[in-house]
């Protein structure tokens, strides 16, 4: 067995049994890590594979969350069924954004701003939509009777730990398969040079739209999870640009276009945030913002020192194949 495979299996086993030694807090931290890894993986399909910089992925998180939550609250539809319309809605939104962008040759920074604009429009829209609570927030009922209904995504910290772990692993698997597929290779070609890709028979617009569709569909599930994990939705939070930024950070820090980048990035960033919270508390600094200042500085240092991401550097050192992206 190759060294990389041994490492992977050991890590997986550790993650499976780890909850035994975890308290509620640690479980919640890992849920955040897996969520960030999952969403980062979804974003990476667009940016890392197809070279489309989206800074508005909160659009798909929010739409997915609101769609599944509204179906559950208003019609009692299980999120396991509700996730399909949620996905469909996000894919429609993705096609609209993508079609506008590609049809009118809106690329690079302009495309990124288009994605932000759509997320902002959705944020303001949902802030006024009374059907889902408008600015007052949209709350999912939490009661003793429904406590164990896993099919309604009702459960304790352990349930969400394994659910989020499963999602992160599934995303890894999907991205692994995509990366090796013909489509994955055509995405890379498109990312590297769209004009040259066209010249060797790649329908660039279609490849890009498919990337947006897959990314949006995957991200919508991150939204469904969010809704049923937190049980409350505020448009001002879920559609906020800061959420989009959180989503892009893990893969960028970990290594864009790599399979393990989003995971490594999430494993660095989420604990870094938590550690900073703990550290500022331990030092008796009670002021707001201190943690975020260090976080911001940390980002600047990481991107200055490891521009290609942390994972390719590690992989090269370990002699694992993914050093190249």
């Amino acid at each position: 067995m190759k060294k990389a495979e041994v490492v992977a299996i050991v890590a997986l086993l550790a993650l499976l049994v780890a909850p035994l030694a975890m308290d509620r807090y640690l479980l919640s931290v890992f849920v955040l890590v897996f969520w960030a890894a999952y969403a980062g993986q979804a974003w990476n399909v667009m940016m890392g594979f197809a070279g489309l910089l989206s800074l508005g992925h909160s659009l798909y998180v929010g739409l997915g969350a609101y769609a599944a939550a509204a179906l559950f609250v208003h019609f009692g539809i299980s999120p396991l069924l509700g996730l399909f319309p949620a996905m469909a809605l996000c894919m429609i939104a993705g096609v609209v954004v993508g079609w506008l962008g590609f049809r009118f040759r809106i690329e690079g920074v302009y495309f990124a701003l288009l994605t932000i604009a759509f997320a902002e429009v959705a944020r303001i829209g949902f802030d006024h939509l009374t059907w889902t609570g408008a600015a007052g927030g949209f709350f999912l009922p939490v009661s003793r009777e429904t406590a164990g209904q896993w099919w309604n995504l009702r459960g304790g910290p352990l349930f969400f730990y394994y659910l989020s772990l499963g999602m992160a692993l599934a995303a890894l698997g999907i991205c692994w398969a995509l990366r090796r597929s013909r489509l994955g290779h055509q995405w890379l070609a498109t990312r590297e040079d769209a004009e040259a890709a066209r010249a060797i028979g790649i329908n660039v617009t279609r490849a890009r739209i498919v990337a947006v569709l897959i990314s949006a569909a995957m991200t919508s599930l991150a939204g469904v999870f969010y809704a049923f994990y937190y049980n409350n939705l505020f448009a001002a939070q879920i559609f906020d640009m800061s959420r989009s930024i959180d989503i892009v950070l893990a893969p960028i820090v970990g290594g864009i276009g790599t399979l393990f980048g989003p995971i490594i990035g999430a494993l660095i960033l989420i604990p870094l945030g938590e550690l900073l919270t703990e550290a500022t508390r331990a030092l008796g600094i009670n002021a707001p913002g201190v943690k975020a200042i260090f976080y911001g500085l940390g980002l600047m240092v990481i991107i200055a020192l490891a521009p290609g991401g942390v994972w390719p550097a590690i992989a090269r050192r370990l002699g694992i194949g993914e050093g190249r992206r």
Partner: peptide
Amino acid sequence: FQIVRPFPAL
């Protein structure tokens, strides 16, 4: 292409 356009990172 006259000015070559390989996919550089691949």
